[in-house]
Amino acid sequence: MKAETCSRIENLTAEIDGKTILNGLTLEVGAGEVHAIMGPNGAGKSTLSYVLAGREGYEVKGGSVTLDGVDLLAMAPHERAAAGVFLGMQYPVEIPGVSNLLFLRTALNAQRTLRGEPEISGADFMKAMKAAAADMGLDFEMMKRSVNQGFSGGEKKRNEMIQMAMLKPKLALLDETDSGLDIDALRVVADGINKMRSPDRATLLITHYQRLLDHVQPDRVHVLMAGRIVRSGGPELALELEAEGYARIAAEAGLANITDAAA
């Protein structure tokens, strides 16, 4: 039986500074599924995650996005977060002077309030944070430090997995979460993603490399070029891209070369 649709993107067109980046992109990610997005630089992969999360500066010119049947594009960024959208950034920012504990409890309670739920108690929050940090192999003392300040690249990505575990999103957008990770950190982060697979969560992994998919077996792999999905397949598609690159798929999509495949 087909899973109930968690997120549906139809003919999405978006631009920044007057330049079209997404050009009629259509994609459906069912509840409980993990989909991977791959493609050449400039194809629109990160733009897709930014548009879905509501990042400022990106203008939607057409199409629709729904999350559990609700119009996502009609919501402000904080409303999308409360509705269940989570964005794991390629380059997590540092926030000096704000501890990880304060940052995450404030974010969590803000979302709960917007959903009409009671705030989480201090005791319950600390218990959940300690468990999430342990799962990600981070010393809990690091959670008392400023957000990402002094963290290595791998620690920043693990910290994002902790945030994801605490916020429990319906739609997790992970933008090159494997960027800057060594082999051990990659395995830990991949294990975190796998642990957070859920029947009511859709996950979209944006990645350049097949190595992450060795550890996180996706349900579907999509190739994004020139702002649209030009090919979809199973995990074997990532292996094909790793071996052959994008040139043949670009030609099959009517794009003369890889430069044209970028938006």
Rank of each mutant, 00 (worst) to 15 (best):
K2G: 07
T5S: 15
R8W: 14
T13K: 14
T13M: 06
I16Y: 15
D17T: 06
D17L: 11
L25T: 10
L27P: 10
E33G: 05
E33H: 09
H35R: 05
M38A: 03
M38F: 11
K45W: 05
Y50N: 14
E56I: 06
G57V: 08
V60N: 03
K61H: 00
G63K: 01
G63Q: 00
L67K: 08
G69S: 13
V70E: 15
P77V: 07
R80L: 07
A81D: 11
V85M: 08
S99W: 03
N100G: 15
L102E: 15
F103L: 07
T106D: 15
L108P: 05
N109V: 08
R112M: 04
P118Y: 03
A123W: 05
G137E: 08
F140M: 11
M143N: 02
S146Y: 07
N148G: 01
Q149T: 14
N159C: 02
N159Y: 09
L167T: 05
A172L: 10
L174G: 07
E176F: 12
A185N: 15
A185R: 01
L186F: 12
V189Q: 07
N194C: 09
R197P: 04
P199Q: 04
D200Y: 00
R201V: 06
A202F: 10
L204I: 15
L204W: 04
T207M: 12
R211I: 11
R211V: 09
D219Y: 01
V223L: 13
A226M: 09
G227F: 07
R231V: 12
P235D: 08
A238W: 07
A238P: 00
E244S: 13
G245S: 02
A253V: 14
G254T: 00
L255F: 02
T259L: 10
T259N: 13
T259P: 00
